[in-house]
Design a protein around this nucleic acid. Structure first.
Lengths: 162, 162
DNA sequence: CGCTATTATGTAGGTGCCTACATATTGTCA
DNA sequence: TGACAATATGTAGGCACCTACATAATAGCG
């Protein structure tokens, strides 16, 4: 038994990160094997742009559940790679409308089999891990109901009572 | 239902990361409320040094399940903060022996109640999320048995057969 | 219409980990 | 004993996100 496991619940944050990093690294490796330069964070944005053709930074952020800053930064590297274009929205100069370029669409088509394989691998792993995905949903819900910070503070106050 | 949940298993890596980041941020906030400057990554190293008094970079890396590079970098910021000292091992000049300083011990003592509160909060969340910690262990085991990369490749080959 | 509040997105710097590569030390073997 | 393999740790750069702060545009109100 290694350290994270020996620590029970306390190492949960660290374990989540390491699992995430491991999965990301494996995905990167898969792209690399196909000879494709691809940033993992592009997937969410590209997938959304495939589904809806155009979207603003804010819309993507909301849809993906990340900050607008992350979307903005991702957008910049996507543009640099020629996969996405960004233009001001006609009805509101603050908004930037993002679209896949033809090259972006080609890339997505090319990666479709790989993304399918990702899906299959992920479902397999979910089954092997006793339904981790449903548990993640529950964890997200639990933290939305009461954040770790709030919980920590409650226990800290209790300790202070002694 | 937001995007990560709507994507089922495929967004597992991203979800793990976001949960991890959220928990880290909450922990950071708790330290901040106590007026303590503390890096989350210090916890694992400091806890080990409390338990065993001295340890090498390699030992800590193995115990914590992270790379020696991460330990080395953490050690450097801990030293800079005056919480840890590092000296060459008497029996092997390559090895660096790390120890908590008196200041490091004081810091740990001071944080004990907070770490206790972390533990309690984490166990609470584990219970609320239907035993996520055990599922994480199963996920770790599943990925050790067959990595995401290997699984992706298997499915990719299958797709190629069509 | 002018002012203020709100909204949209960008810049800067940071987090905790990783891989690739590098250097120095120790161990082993002929 | 010397050469080479193995071991220990460090440097550099990267990843995908975050918060704080900033600027510009729009909405709303008197």
């Amino acid at each position: 038994m290694d350290y994270p496991q020996s620590q029970g619940a306390r190492a949960i944050g660290a374990r989540l990160r390491r699992l995430s990093d491991a999965i990301d690294a494996d995905a990167a490796r898969a792209y690399s094997v196909l000879g494709v330069r691809f940033e993992q964070r592009w997937f969410g944005v590209m997938n959304q742009l495939l589904e809806r053709e155009a979207a603003t930074v804010g819309q993507l952020a909301e849809a993906l559940g990340i900050t607008h800053v992350s979307v903005s930064q991702t957008r910049q590297s996507l543009e640099k790679a020629g996969l996405v274009t960004a233009e001001a929205d006609p009805s509101d100069a603050r908004k930037r409308r993002l679209r896949l370029t033809a090259e972006g669409r080609d890339m997505a088509a090319r990666l479709r089999p790989l993304w399918r394989a990702f899906d299959a691998a992920a479902e397999e792993v979910d089954a092997d891990a006793g339904g981790i995905v449903a548990r993640l949903s529950e964890l997200e819900k639990a933290l939305k109901q009461a954040s770790m910070f709030e919980r920590i503070m409650v226990h800290l106050d209790k300790a202070g009572d002694r």
